[in-house]
Design a protein around this nucleic acid. Structure first.
Lengths: 218, 218
DNA sequence: AACGTTTGCTAAACACCGTTTAGTACAAGA
DNA sequence: TCTTGTACTAAACGGTGTTTAGCAAACGTT
């Protein structure tokens, strides 16, 4: 009898519908309008029902974060592939950076939920669910590390570059730029998106410059 | 008759008590525990009273942000002064960066409230109140720009460096590092504060390296 | 076919929240 | 003393996340 399979499929379907609704609300109304009751309204179930599928709002948010991670990873990959196979690895690295920035600018709600929310609350306890998100994160990260290593072997960047460390610092630079821009703290310096994108390019220049230069600091 | 002066003093005193309570709650319980009703409880007034002094929660938060900006600016200044007058400007620049990071690590609630909250909601309308906060922000920023310019004149960094742009990029790098660290996204790479501080030093190395190198990028 | 039992769901409640309104007690000025 | 204005608050409104008790329908078993 396939009834229990059908039941399980239906259960999974509703679970997905909840995550979809959550992600739509996040995109449309941002974190402000993101509430369990609003999700319930949208899927036309009672708020209590959501608690049969997710144990808390935070749990549901984590599911959305995983979805966001997937998208971010995709955008970066697509941007790298769009750069083409014939370009240098260094250029592909730049492309990955542009992908990160583009994702942040075009999915600000996702971006904030991914990078602002997890903040400092945990540290112990809920490591497993966090790690799940991190794993997806790492897929993109490893790809960037790979292309950086390739750029070293191609001779664009210096041979002894600590590629993992370099990847983190480059990531942080772009992340900081985009965070400051989105929170309005670059209003005086780069008010428009165009000006901001120029700033991003100059930052990528700087990063490349630093990776290229032989190490002999102070 | 000094009665109205006394009344005004008392009014100002209560206003300050509200901001103090708000800042304490923020430090002790983070953004989670930060509520108008909790502030009211702590100052032993009714919640409605707060609305005689601040027109909304956001308005009160802005007052706390201003306070936080002042502190951040102070920490950076102190760290720069602690580096001493006899050291190079480049070293003073590094010190300012360390100050920024130290403030973020030791005042995480302030840091989040300053840099995460303003986010994307406004953009028009409430420009005046925002500018007030930015002005304090700029005091520190201008100081950093100044020391960067000095380092150029001293010959440490290249003469044609766009110091304002450089300051923004450097700021973003440290801001990104600290944001990623606080949100747990560097757990795999720099789990402890010690390891993170090493990463910060390596980033400051990289920044200095890039400012030093003559421009001739691709 | 009838009878427990399990499943999927919800109404209602609890304890919070930000904010507004109507009103009170009291001090100041006339 | 009477009026006016000031400082404050109780209570309400509509929202939130979450829990609990219970209901109706589907299920497995006899």
């Amino acid at each position: 009898m396939g009834t229990i399979e059908r039941r399980e499929r239906e259960k999974e379907h509703l679970r997905e519908k909840i995550v979809e609704a959550a992600r739509d609300i996040l995109s449309e109304r941002g974190l402000e309008g993101f509430s369990m009751r609003e999700i319930a309204r949208r899927i036309e179930y009672s708020p209590a029902t959501i608690y049969l599928y997710f144990q808390s709002k935070e749990d549901l948010v984590r599911a959305v974060v995983r979805e966001g991670m997937r998208r971010l990873s995709d955008v970066i990959r697509i941007e790298m592939e769009a750069a083409g196979e014939h370009v240098s690895s260094a250029e592909r690295y730049r492309a990955s950076g542009r992908g990160y920035v583009r994702f942040a600018l075009e999915n600000t709600a996702y971006f904030h939920v991914i990078f602002d929310l997890p903040g400092e609350a945990q540290m112990e306890g809920d490591c497993s669910a966090l790690m799940e998100g991190e794993a997806l994160d790492q897929a993109a990260f490893e790809r960037v590390v790979g292309v950086l290593g390739q750029a070293c072997r191609e001779g664009t960047y210096r041979k002894d570059l600590d590629v993992e460390q370099a990847a983190v610092i480059g990531w942080a630079t772009l992340h900081g730029l985009v965070s400051l821009f989105l929170s309005g703290h670059l209003q005086d310096f780069a008010p428009t998106r165009e000006q901001f994108e120029v700033l991003v390019e100059r930052s990528l220049d700087m990063i490349g410059l630093a990776w290229r230069t032989p190490i002999e600091t102070r």
